[in-house]
Nucleic acid binder design. Structure first.
Lengths: 336, 336
DNA sequence: ATGAAAGCGCTAACAT
DNA sequence: ATGTTAGCGCTTTCAT
């Protein structure tokens, strides 16, 4: 086993209280004493036991990342952004899967977090999501990324604007039959979906283009889902000349479906996605790119700010700007 | 704050010891008593404080994932596999970045883990990696994924075989000038690199094809790196008719580089990658696929086995089988 | 500036 | 089957 604070205290000829103060950089410790303590600790290879200091102090020195998925690009990238922010300090990163419909958790989230983390960064879940809402009511420090909130600090893009931007781009190219590949019929779990969809409808309306329900299909935000959705769209009576996919991964699926039917993105049907996924370049996919890792980092920073300012804390919304990256998957309709 | 074990004990009319036993499912507790305790705990919304029980028991109930990257596909997917394995039990998942050359850590790994985790799953780092080796010497319970070891349990593919398989496939198609896009000149951090490279040379030798040094370039296992590596290969005197990329992501980069020069994968130059990355289908990339998430899951299970069998523990090597998925990026050389 | 001492909330002998 | 009790290794008043 490793040394305890008592052994360090004895070796340095001071009390355990002084060791604790010296090592944590607290005031009221003579610099000479501090130096001696630090050296002694190093010599004895002493590291404070987290469990002991957590128990005594009530703080865990841990922040959790609450996310429905860990491997999908958007989520993994947010997590890496959070990790980036934490490498600066001594905080631990606890990874917790929440809200993954495929793997419902048995233990209430609030219990799984209690005394385990001082706060959490929530990925892509809105403040209305039951378990998240409950945490907020318990005053558990939270920060959201991918969804805005007026109850806690949040970092996200303007999803409605994103939907408008993508759709307007297609309209500008001359498209009028513009399809939509969304996530699910109605999913309260991801506000981004509804907002982007509203932006889509908004852009159509502004240009006096009637929205046709038959031009919408659902792809669950996965590649496979996007593939199925495109197959379905292609089997409908009304055919789109362009399709707005609510995520790049669904757009990739749509591309696969098109290719299977001998269709070429940008020639037979224009395609636009959302995310700025690393693979969008190779796929030649036009996309509305968002700075995902940076969003994760900012959310982590905001959370730390809140933890360090227990009292004077005000929820802050950070809207990141997006960028339309035009590639060959979007071009004017065939006739033109 | 939440209830303590003493309040539960008082409310249930038993001692704290009995509450502890009852709630943890230990033997020697009357079923009637247990029921009463459980109900009382529920009513008081009691959850044992992790810090307190960790301090008292010496176990952390946490396993760490040690990984150089969290957002890259392979790594994120392994992590999700680990998370999958942990949803079964009550273990916490601590995410720790280790061995990322871009973000060297100041605190020694052994100190960052001490009293924080009962064990760790190591992603893609070999048992010879200094910090990992040190942990093993300290008898810290470890399990590796992506690299085999005879010191601790490990889950990986046969990388030499993978290299041979990919290269032989190209040879069978009629290629003789077969290039290689590797990670770095000599990187002890990823044994997969050397093993796959050996497999490549092995296959060439078996077919009596001399390996030409000018046919190798380095791509750091990233898309951007793969792109640069391919640009370099294309600028060399000797031109390959096929290139074996040590990862799919580097192959994607190579594809981008080719496209920029008006070259088509599978027509002008054949390409094979390794991983079975989700995007390989859309990219039409021939690849040697490995079951990454499953490997992460198995590594986590192996670690738990070790933690539950402190004594009778034997390192176990699990070799996963790979599958060559042939797509249009690999075809016979132009002349044929 | 430093020390003494009382917990923090559990678990694990040991006793009964 | 259940209770008593001594820690686990720190942090934090409160003294000095």
């Amino acid at each position: 086993m490793s040394a305890t604070i008592r052994e360090v205290a004895a070796a340095a000829g001071v009390s355990t209280a002084t060791v604790s103060r010296a090592l944590r950089g607290l005031p009221y410790v003579d610099e000479v004493t501090r130096k001696r303590v630090v050296e002694t600790a190093q010599r004895l290879d002493y590291v404070a036991s987290p469990s002991a200091s957590r128990l005594a102090s009530g703080r865990t020195g841990t922040i959790a990342v609450l996310t429905p998925y860990v491997a999908r690009w958007f989520f993994a990238t947010v997590i890496s952004g959070v990790a980036m922010a934490l490498t600066e300090g001594p905080l631990d990163l606890l990874l917790v899967e929440v809200g993954n419909p495929d793997r419902p958790s048995t233990v209430p989230l609030e219990q799984r977090l209690r005394s385990r983390a001082d706060g959490a960064v929530v990925v892509a879940l809105p403040d209305t999501y039951p378990e998240i809402s409950q945490l907020i009511e318990h005053d558990f420090p939270l920060t959201l990324v991918g969804s805005l909130s007026d109850r806690v600090s949040s970092v996200a893009i303007n999803d409605a604007e994103t939907g408008r931007l993508a759709t307007q781009h297609l309209i500008n190219l001359g498209h009028r039959e513009i399809g939509l590949i969304s996530g699910a019929t109605s999913d309260e779990s991801f506000t981004a979906q509804d907002d982007r969809t509203n932006g889509y409808h908004d852009a159509l309306t502004r240009s006096g283009i009637p929205a046709h329900p038959a031009l919408t299909a659902y792809g669950a935000f996965t590649r496979e889902g996007g593939e199925r959705a495109m197959v379905e769209l292609l089997s409908r009576e009304v055919q789109p000349t362009a399709v707005f996919c609510l995520s790049d991964e669904m757009a990739f699926g749509a591309m696969i479906a098109m290719r299977r039917q001998g269709l070429t993105p940008g020639i037979d049907i224009a395609l636009v996605g959302v995310d700025g996924h690393p693979q969008s370049e190779l796929a030649n996919l036009t996309t509305v790119a968002q700075p995902v890792a940076e969003m994760g980092r900012l959310a982590a920073v905001a959370l730390q700010d809140r933890l360090n300012n227990a009292e004077k804390y005000e929820p802050r919304q950070t809207a990141m700007s997006v960028e339309l990256v035009v590639r060959s998957s979007s071009a004017p309709p065939k006739g033109n």
